[in-house]
Design a protein around this nucleic acid. Structure first.
Lengths: 337, 337
DNA sequence: GTGAAAGCGCTAACAT
DNA sequence: ATGTTAGCGCTTTCAC
């Protein structure tokens, strides 16, 4: 039941001054070796633990990074978070997490919290609402206060800060070509996330690839998952598609189900492909061929960028790191002949 | 590019004392209304934001909760985390997250970090290794420092602190009875998590239910997922099972695949049921019947318990809250006649 | 080699 | 109604 012991307590017990104790514990050579040893032993014995709030106040650094993610139940984000935590811990930083739940207001509040001095920097991915409303004042505010910030995955051009993104355009472009090489010609792009940049870029990548292949791009844009079954069934019944490329994992899994409900065999009758290499993709039956974004790596890269920025190891102008995607071939697409 | 403005700066600018500014900003009636208004306007104009590190040092409270989870890639934990974040934010607290990655060492280090004064309390679920090695010193240390702690899901008897668990025994007991009512008799329990309490309790619930039904319990214990295909195939080929009850979601999904690989139709030839109501369960084909643990609710309950403890609203002796499970019937089990 | 003192930014008891 | 002062726990410069 002992209450926490302080430097001062320790100094009193040992009959030395506070500064001597402080110096001894940080192995300052100013203090003689024997006293250092004595003080360290006492600290150990009394279970002394420095108060890092006080240290932070003094040092004006908290060794803590703030993270704002739109949703933790999207596996992509929990994977990124995993990468962030690993890298941050490795470099001696803690992380504070806030969820925006795709809302501008929560995102903005979280930034306010972080500005109050509790973190040394911010890592974030934009909420859907923020992207839709294009409201970026809160980011500018963070910058006014000189709080370093790195955006990942869902980023915004207008704010000059370090960024980590995936090459979504190229990923979709390559995925489309991949399907084409499998012999698929009539390819449908299913976009449930067209209100966020990521979704826009993927769609563009698909469209450009189709054009370059002299094929007609066909896009089905939907507002939410509930519509998929109805709308996709309509499409599938009106014409025969060779393949569906979905803008994310979840809708890819749903698309497979809908195809099956319409009597189509995946992949014999129709190939299905998605984005994000998660549990769902791995364990769906058939397992999903996907464009992997290396989520964990994105997280680690974001932390590296942020800490390098904090430690002034980066050039003044913002760095934009683009992570290459990779196609993971599984059983929801025809096999190469 | 302005550096952060402090109370002192503000006081200097306005030609009043620091304490006047402090009081005015906290609406202290000691300060006259006009001065209060004037000061608040200035604060607004100069973009004053209080430094909460300094506030924390003064108040000896950080309005931050520490959370340690074994793995964020297990959907159950990210759901709990979601509940924790929502409830904590609602009550004006931030959360700092550490991942133990199932390792004792990391868990212990995280507790050390938290003890240094950065959080007002801890919420955690034990790492697999901690449970296996039964090493609990780090928890005692937290208690010595009077740091309130609540354990959820994977808890340990020996440490007297508030706890939130799921009634795993009862959940498995009921699941077994549920399968029995469907007409299943030969039921296999697939346990990939027998080294953690949760797994032990579920197995016990299953065994007791089988006994009470005058049926022979049969348990297949495996160390890791890679063994499932081989070992389960062996079992399925040696005798005919009516159903498989898996100790968690992931292995349930795998069990379905293995059954199918062995030419069995799910659920016509064999019913499969699991624990945890996650994406996998929802989107597997057929969709999985599961025992749901109300993960989000667990998270919220843990926060409530912790904050009530911090605010001295709880009786001295530890509170143990048990959350009831619920069966979510889907298509991997036969339908009731 | 050790200690005194100032100060990080804030709050609040205690003057005035 | 406003200001002075002390102090939260620590680090660090400067004296001794």
């Amino acid at each position: 039941m002992k209450s926490k012991i302080t430097l001062k307590d320790l100094a009193a017990i040992l009959g030395v001054s506070v500064s001597t104790v402080s110096k001894a514990l940080s192995d300052n050579p100013e203090i003689s070796l024997p006293t250092r040893k004595k003080i360290k032993q006492a600290a150990e014995a009394y279970n002394y633990i420095p108060n890092n709030i006080a240290q932070s106040l003094k040092a004006k650094s908290t060794k803590t990074l703030g993270v704002i993610i739109p949703a933790i139940l999207l596996e992509f984000f929990s994977k990124v978070l995993y990468g962030i935590e690993i890298e941050a811990t490795q470099r001696g930083y803690k992380i504070v997490i806030c969820l925006s739940n795709e809302l501008l207001k929560k995102e903005s509040e979280s930034i306010n919290t972080f500005i109050t001095g509790s973190v040394d920097g911010i890592i974030l991915s934009l909420a859907e609402e923020t992207q839709r409303l294009k409201s970026y004042n809160h980011f500018q505010k963070a910058q006014q206060y000189n709080l370093p910030m790195v955006m990942f995955d869902r980023v915004v051009e207008e704010i000059p800060c370090d960024k980590v993104t995936v090459d979504d355009f190229e990923g979709a472009f390559n995925a489309t070509k991949f399907l084409h090489e499998l012999g698929e010609r009539k390819i449908l792009f299913l976009n449930t996330i067209h209100s966020i940049t990521v979704g826009v870029l993927r769609e563009q990548g698909y469209v450009e690839a189709m054009k370059s292949l002299k094929l007609d791009p066909q896009v089905l844009r939907l507002e939410n998952y509930n519509q998929i079954e109805k709308e996709l069934t309509k499409m599938l019944q009106s014409e025969k598609f060779d393949a569906i490329l979905a803008a994310e994992e979840y809708s890819a899994a749903l698309a497979m189900n809908v195809a099956r409900l319409n009597g189509l065999h995946v992949p014999n009758d129709i190939s299905v492909m998605g984005f994000t290499n998660g549990l769902l993709a791995e364990h769906a039956i058939p397992s999903l061929t996907v464009v992997s974004q290396h989520a964990e790596f994105i997280g680690r890269s974001a932390v590296k960028l942020l800490l390098d920025r904090i430690e002034n190891k980066l050039p003044e102008e913002p760095v934009h790191k683009v992570i290459k995607t990779r196609i993971i071939e599984r059983n929801s697409t025809k096999h190469k002949k």
